[in-house]
Structures are given as structure tokens and as C-alpha cells.
């Protein structure tokens, strides 16, 4: 129970420290951006995108999930991790934090929980905004047929698979953010690897990149039966290992 108490107090500290920073805004703006782009494309160019007798949600959900997993999610996770760590690095507050009677594991796990929680929030928003956008398209452009069909389960499972398979990449970024005091380095590495993944996506070697696992889950299909859930398991395993690595950095670090 004492361990739980340490964790909840550390988490309350992290929540307080995130107040007034960009971390929450980024968690909201990233999903808003990807859904807005898909919504605008549908609204303005829907007559070309959607054919009669074909569920428009398939194309619309595909745009959102691929746009999110291929570009926005990896870039967002890189920036978010750098921002979360910048709270301590920029003010050099590690010395304050580690002079307090709190175990290092609780400080670390609360930071990781906040970061992961923000990723969960973003995925919930992707799902909610995508559903809301589709509903709005049904109202504004009834001839597309959004109101007469749905794809709730695919969208929900797609968001969930994206989150879990992307946790590996997220934990690597979290590790880099805690290891290096600079904001630019972890954010830059994340951006470079995301770009590299997008360019080399057709090559089989690109499958080893954790930055591509969220998009590789979908196997270029919006049908759940085609999805490759192996990337979810690999993502979770990487999350586990990179998280332990990050903790060891914190545990052994001298605050000079």
C-alpha cells in the first residue's frame, strides 16, 4: 500500500508540473490535426473519394488511421516525450526532485504513466473526433452516406492497435528524453526516424523500425482479419524493455 501511496503522490506531482505547459495541448492538437485534415479532404473532395454502395467510413477511417500511425503519432510521441522531460531538464530540477523523500522508481514510473496517459488520451481523441467528424459529414454531406453505415469497431480496434504497437517507439523516445538533457536531440532523432520509416516503408528491412510498427499493424488494409497483431506484441515487449532501461538511467545517474 505504501508503494501505491508513493506512486499516487508522484503522479499528483507530475500532473501539477504539467500544468501550464504544452504537453496537454499537444495531446489534443495532434489528433485534432489528423482528423481535421481527413475531414476537410472528405468534405471538399468527397465526391471523388466516396462511391455509392461502398461504406464511406472505410475510406475515411483508413485516411485517419494511416495518417495518424505513419506520420502524426511518431512525430507527436517524439515531441511529447521531449516536452515531458524538458520540465525537469530545463529548470535543472532533478536535484530538487531527488532530494525529496520519494523513491526514484516512483518518480520515474509517474513520469512514464503521465506520458503514456497522454498517448492514451490522444488515441481516445482520435477515435472520438473521427466518429464525430463522420457524423458531421453525414449531416453536412448526406449523399456520401455516412449516416446510413458505421465502422465503430474497426475504428476503435484500429486506435487501440495503434496505441499498443506504438508503445515500443514511445518508450524508446522516453528513454532518449530522460538520457539526454537537450530537447532537440530526442525530438530530432524521432523526427528523422519517422521520415526514414516513411521513405523506406516499401523495403522489408523497414519492419524492424519501431516507428513503423503502428502503421504496419494495418497491413495496408482496413479489414481487421488482415491486420498483423504481432507488431502489438513486439511493441509491448519493446515498451517493457525500454522502460527498464530508462529506469536504470535514472537510478544510476549522478545529479552533478
Amino acid at each position: 500500500m505504501r508503494q501505491l501511496d508513493y506512486f499516487t503522490r508522484s503522479l499528483a506531482q507530475e500532473r501539477l508540473k504539467a500544468k501550464g505547459t504544452l504537453v496537454v495541448w499537444l495531446a489534443i492538437l495532434a489528433p485534432v490535426f489528423v482528423v481535421t485534415v481527413a475531414f476537410m479532404a472528405s468534405y471538399l473532395d468527397g465526391n471523388r473519394l466516396y462511391r455509392s454502395n461502398v461504406n464511406p467510413w472505410l475510406e475515411y477511417s483508413g485516411h485517419i488511421l494511416i495518417g495518424w500511425t505513419l506520420f502524426v503519432f511518431p512525430i507527436y510521441a517524439s515531441l511529447q516525450s521531449a516536452l515531458v522531460h524538458a520540465i525537469e531538464h530545463q529548470s535543472q530540477t532533478w536535484k530538487t526532485l531527488f532530494s525529496l523523500p520519494m523513491p526514484k522508481w516512483s518518480v520515474y514510473s509517474a513520469k512514464l504513466a503521465l506520458f503514456t496517459g497522454l498517448l492514451v488520451l490522444s488515441h481516445v481523441l482520435v477515435l472520438g473526433l473521427a466518429e464525430g467528424g463522420g457524423w458531421l459529414l453525414g449531416m453536412l454531406k448526406p449523399h456520401y452516406g455516412f449516416q446510413s453505415s458505421s465502422l465503430h469497431r474497426v475504428l476503435a480496434e484500429g486506435c487501440f492497435a495503434s496505441l499498443l504497437s506504438g508503445l515500443g517507439m514511445a518508450a524508446i523516445q522516453f528513454f532518449l528524453g530522460i538520457r539526454f538533457g537537450s530537447f532537440i536531440l530526442p525530438a530530432g532523432v524521432g523526427l528523422m526516424l519517422t521520415m526514414l520509416g516513411a521513405i523506406s516503408r516499401s523495403l522489408s528491412v523497414s519492419r524492424v523500425s519501431p516507428y513503423l510498427w503502428p502503421v504496419l499493424v494495418f497491413n495496408s488494409s482496413i479489414q481487421i482479419q488482415d491486420w498483423q497483431f504481432t507488431y502489438v506484441w513486439i511493441g509491448l515487449l519493446t515498451f517493457f524493455l525500454a522502460s527498464i532501461g530508462g529506469f536504470l538511467i535514472i537510478y544510476r545517474r549522478d545529479v552533478a
Binding site: K17, K19, P101
Partner: peptide, 27 residues
């Protein structure tokens, strides 16, 4: 209780919130 060199503070928070961070640790 310690003060090491120049105080390391969360400059985006108020003075009271900085103390609240410490209070949460010290219960």
C-alpha cells in the same frame, strides 16, 4: 530540507505550486 546552489524551481508554476510539489512529497 535542502537548498542546493541556486534554487532549482519550476518557473512555469507559481511559488505556491512549487511548494505544493514539495508538500506532496513530504506529506
Amino acid at each position: 530540507g535542502a537548498l542546493i546552489e541556486s534554487p532549482a524551481l519550476y518557473t512555469h508554476l507559481s511559488g505556491r505550486d512549487n511548494l505544493e510539489v514539495i508538500r506532496l512529497a513530504r506529506q
